[in-house]
């Protein structure tokens, strides 16, 4: 199963980004193969429509869960219709490595 985590850098030590649509990087983590992939977000500085465009990017990787700090109003119904689970984690100090460890215990 693949999980997307929004991060503000492209290393395991970078922190969880509190925004979904305009986050710096998407970390695509595969819980079975333990493969990690960092995708730079092309919609980082978009004026509008960053959320739906990011959903499209993430959904094309067959992600089943998304971990982020907050989800915008346009995204919620879109992700509900795509059956992708949203996980809201209001802890900006958490690093990507800590979140991946949480997924495993």
């Amino acid at each position: 199963m693949k999980v997307a985590i929004t991060s503000n850098g492209n290393s395991l030590e970078s922190k969880l980004d509190q925004r979904f649509g305009r986050c710096g990087y998407f970390t695509i983590y595969d819980t079975e193969t333990k493969g990690i992939e960092f995708l730079p977000n092309p919609n980082k500085d978009a004026q509008e429509g960053a959320g739906p465009a990011s959903v499209q990017l993430v959904a094309s990787r067959n992600v089943q869960k998304i971990i982020s700090g907050e989800f915008g109003i346009k995204i919620k119904s879109l992700l509900d219709s795509l059956k992708i689970q949203m996980i809201v984690l209001k802890q900006p100090e958490k690093s990507i490595r800590e979140i991946i460890d949480m997924l495993h215990n």
């Binding site: 971990i67 509900d80 059956k83 689970q85 996980i87 809201v88 984690l89 802890q91």
Partner: peptide
């Protein structure tokens, strides 16, 4: 436990 919020898509 971890203070997160999540939804049930299915």
């Amino acid at each position: 436990n971890c203070g997160c919020f999540f939804n049930n898509p299915d």
